[in-house]
Design a protein around this nucleic acid. Structure first.
Lengths: 254, 254
DNA sequence: GTTGATCATTGACGCAGATCAAGAGTGGAT
DNA sequence: ATCCACTCTTGATCTGCGTCAATGATCAAC
């Protein structure tokens, strides 16, 4: 096994997990990468000490050096307006990439903060670029991932611009559900790792509205929610509520 | 000069314009591409017959084969909800790329329609990919363009989620202004190629609200507007209204 | 156990902006 | 010129959701 840079804090078990064996490998970079190529990708990836809840992975204005993939836990990314108000732009679950928006200007336009204890793979962009020059499949994969991200952002724009509070929250829950399922977690029962305030902020709603909607959805038998724990009872109907296309159960986020 | 596929309808003057000489070359793919490389890029680009107002460049669900760059004129991209409602996701001005969201799933998730007579460069994605395998600079440039697109979409999400009607319209006008300036057009006087309805749809506002805001902005001396023709009188103040960062006059869109 | 901090729920009220409705330009077709 | 189809403006109402405020849970610290 090739040696690689490692943090002392990381357990032995952790650092012996290669991308190849990692349950996230088809997630980070879903398809079309050969095993042999995967080894080379693996070699450039740096596994970092886990972040504690509230710790920053990077801050607004930080120089861009690496992309990051969430291995476990979750992050939020946010901008701040001049008056210091936080505006959440996304939540990031295991297997999702963070930092794609920083490539263009070599600066992170958003900050990323852990919502819970979170471990991360760091992918130094230099190494990534030179590797992808040699591996067309990696390059192609990267374009797909970024394209998907653009597509997702468009979906979010649609939700924010045209949907009612009810539709937004429903769409949000379905989105989380899809993303969890895709990673092999339960799609009907999971923990919200973010507060009502965070959800409201992200969806462009007051936190009170979010809270009211949760109770209403619960009364209507759509779901059961208790604090951060949520169970989707009638996913079908919830999905219908979101006025999204609930057909192909589209892969949704990154 | 290398021969290339050409539509009979295109004037001679048009087809002799190479990417190299094209006023758009640093726009489509802004930096870091050598002249020699630019020639090779130029060779794969297909110039198409202009679209008439209302014509589609592609429709939702169309197979993805090419990226497109607007040469002159303008496009809108939009999704349709099941009830046939149109939801506009973006407007595209000369020098901007369209279709980046289609790479991920080989299908166009949005339709693109000409707002006026519009000419287009078609960039077949196959050729583009194999060329970019040979040209690291092109590859890098593509990542930057896509990253910028993600960043822009995030900005739009912020606007839609948190801003008032007034702020949204101001931000929209400033964005157009920046994009026109960047292409060498006037940043204070230009034509809106889209209707009030389109603007409202895009910004998540009723067309009546857009109309009212235009008159209000005019009364307040921020701008002068007559039908589709607009002149920004007090760009500073308008920018301040938009609660965006008006400092570096950020490049804004793609 | 008590205290304090954070987070969530619920109610009362008001407003920004949607919706409904009625004209008024404007431009192309004939 | 006249007509028709659009697009835009402006006014009058209505309502979804934000804001303000009070109370209740949960959890960590000690």
């Amino acid at each position: 096994m090739p040696t690689r840079k490692q943090e002392k804090v990381v357990s032995l078990k952790d650092i012996t997990v290669a991308c190849q064996a990692c349950s996230l490998n088809e997630i980070c970079l879903p398809v079309g990468i050969e095993n042999k190529d995967m080894e080379r990708l693996d070699a450039i990836i740096d596994r970092k000490r886990p972040l504690a809840r509230g710790e920053h992975l990077f801050r607004i204005g930080d120089r861009f050096r690496s992309l990051y993939a969430v291995r476990s836990g979750s992050l939020k990314t946010y901008a701040t307006s001049e008056d210091g108000q936080e505006q959440i732009m996304g939540f990031h679950l295991p297997g999702e990439l963070v930092g794609l928006d920083a490539i263009a200007n070599d600066v992170h336009p958003l900050a990323a903060k852990a919502l819970e204890t979170t471990s991360i793979c760091e992918i130094p962009f230099d190494s990534f670029e030179s590797l992808s020059n040699q591996l067309p499949s990696l390059q192609r994969q990267m374009l797909r991932v970024m394209s998907q991200e653009i597509h997702n952002d468009e979906q979010n724009m649609l939700t924010l611009g045209q949907r009612s509070a009810e539709e937004r929250l429903a769409a949000f829950l379905i989105s989380l559900s899809n993303r969890y399922r895709r990673r092999g977690f339960s799609s009907t029962q999971f923990n919200l790792t973010m507060s009502r305030g965070d959800i409201g902020n992200y969806l462009g709603l007051a936190l009170e509205t979010v809270s009211r909607l949760f109770t209403r959805f619960q009364n209507e038998g759509l779901l059961k929610v208790e604090r951060r724990n949520i169970e989707l009872i009638d996913r079908q109907r919830l999905c219908h509520f979101s006025s999204a296309n609930c057909y192909g159960d589209n892969p949704d986020n990154t």
